[in-house]
Amino acid sequence: MGVIVEQFPLYVQGFLQTVRICILAAVGSLILGTILAAFRVSPVPPLRAVGAAWVTVFRNTPLAVVLFAVAFGLPELGINGSYFWFGVAGLTLYTAAFVCEAVRSGINSVSAGQAEAARAMGLTFSQSLSLIVLPQAFRTVVPPLGSVIIAMIKNSAIVGAFGVGGDLFAVGVQLTSAQGYAAAGVLTGVLLGYLILTIPAGIVLARLERKLAVAR
């Protein structure tokens, strides 16, 4: 366990890198996922097809495969970047599918009367979706969305395993493989780093869930 104290600065760096990856991917996938959800409930069949295809592909493919495909595929399309950005991109594309499904189930949970009232007032599809349904849906989807984001934080470790330098998982690998520290101590430190992120998030989420449940 001494390694955690000895190499504390390295752990902090890794922790911050993980947080960076998570924030970027969380913002990206929330935006992309919401757009996809809007696609899936829109009256335009081609958009619905795009949304459905996205969800089917990315929910059924392992993140590791998505990451490899992104890192090999994007350069072929002329999009070059560092492995950091490939990692963030892969995590975003993957998580967006889960965000989409969470948001869509939220939209479906908003009672029909709300949308009907909006329509009765003459709002268009995009107006009723953005002004009436989505704001309410987002409240319902906070619990599932929170679960998605917590899962994403954990999945960010796969991005580290994939070769993005400097995140928590990479620190663990570096200390065990290159510097020869015993794995038990090193990995306990890495675990603590992730638990610092996931456990409080889980507690906050549980609180939120209870609160929203009372409000309904």
Partner: peptide
């Protein structure tokens, strides 16, 4: 681009198989 394939495979594979 062809080159980037070949080399990337080697490099990524090396980076990836962290331990076994």
């Amino acid at each position: 681009m062809r080159l980037s394939h070949l080399t990337k495979v080697a490099a990524v594979a090396a980076a990836l198989v962290l331990t076994a």
